[in-house]
């Protein structure tokens, strides 16, 4: 008890104490997060170098081996209606989906951080207006917004990524806004302000470093969300367009072949689930590791 008390007091008095080491140890204790991290590394490596090791190109049409079931012929994970190799397609699709996920995360986090910083720092009217904007955008189901925007633009890797980012920045903005509002009243901020530091210096040099932890957590969860969103729009036909494979659009026609070639539906979905849950587990582990108030079993 007394330990928590003093560290809270230290945090209230000055800059939050650095807890780097303890955070790393806590994260390592989180077995699922470690497994998630390993799976992500494996997926990234496989998608990066896997395709060059395979005998088939993802676009290679092999009409003699259409609808080949997994492990039943030359195609390890089977083939689709055109005889294209499913594994090659999955790996190439992974490049696209993971890239969309990461880039959309970077964009949405950047937008969220800037809006949250501005809103929390200036507070008052500006802050209120920005947060009401966040509330208003959150009123729309993100898939509805996503599809509308996607239908209004010509689909390409870039537009899809940007659109996903545009519908995913609000949570980050909210979190940053809340943290900044709390930090702004601390002594060291008031001191820095009294010393005449500029607004941007205060925001990016003084405030931002102190709220990295929650941003990292929500950024990680944002990757998961972006991969999922890409899957949704592409599945519904408004995302990445064939023949470029993505994890979402591989499921496009899968429903038709559910009776004859269920693996076409089952495998890509399983890979999406694997990737998304890995990011979610890592995010969860990070949250536990970086949050000083958490409790772990003994």
């Amino acid at each position: 008890m007394s330990g928590v008390g003093t560290s809270q007091m230290e945090m209230a008095a000055g800059k939050p104490v650095r807890q780097g080491n303890r955070a790393v140890r806590r994260f390592l204790r989180h077995r699922l997060a470690i497994i998630g991290l390993l799976i992500i590394l494996f997926l990234v490596l496989a998608c990066a170098i896997g395709p060059s090791l395979l005998p088939y190109n993802q676009l290679h049409i092999d009409l003699r081996h259409r609808f080949q079931a997994p492990f039943m012929g030359p195609h390890i994970l089977g083939s689709d209606q055109l005889g294209r190799d499913l594994l090659a397609r999955l790996l190439m699709a992974g490049r696209i989906s993971l890239t969309v996920g990461f880039v959309a995360m970077v964009l949405s986090t950047a937008v969220g951080v800037i809006i949250g910083l501005a809103s929390g720092f200036y507070g008052g009217r500006i802050g209120g207006a920005l947060m009401r904007l966040v509330d208003a955008v959150l009123c729309f189901p993100s898939i509805f917004l996503l599809l509308t925007l996607a239908a209004l633009t010509t689909p390409s890797l870039l537009t899809i990524t940007v659109i996903i980012a545009l519908t995913a920045w609000m949570q980050v903005a909210r979190i940053v806004d809340g943290q900044v509002r709390a930090l702004r009243e601390r002594d060291y901020m008031i001191a820095a302000e009294a010393l005449g530091a500029s607004d941007s210096r205060l925001m990016f040099r003084e405030l931002l470093p102190n709220i990295v932890a929650p941003i990292v957590v929500s950024a990680t969860l944002n990757v998961a969300n972006a991969i999922l969103m890409e899957a949704y729009v592409s599945y519904l036909g408004y995302g990445i367009q064939p023949p470029t494979p993505s994890w979402g659009n591989m499921l496009n026609n899968a429903q038709e072949y559910l009776t004859t070639a269920p693996w076409l539906a089952l495998l890509p979905g399983a890979v999406i689930t694997l990737a998304v849950s890995s990011f979610n587990f890592v995010g969860d582990g990070l949250r536990d590791a970086l949050d000083p108030h958490m409790d772990l079993p003994g």
């Binding site: 699922l32 999922l228 949704y232 499921l251 689930t273 849950s277």
Partner: peptide, 22 residues
């Protein structure tokens, strides 16, 4: 719960269709 939140809903739909309908 974490896995459930990571499953694409439409794919889960396909899976249950495959199991319970097909």
């Amino acid at each position: 719960a974490m896995v459930a939140l990571s499953i694409p809903t439409f794919w889960f739909g396909l899976v249950v269709i495959y199991i319970f309908s097909v």
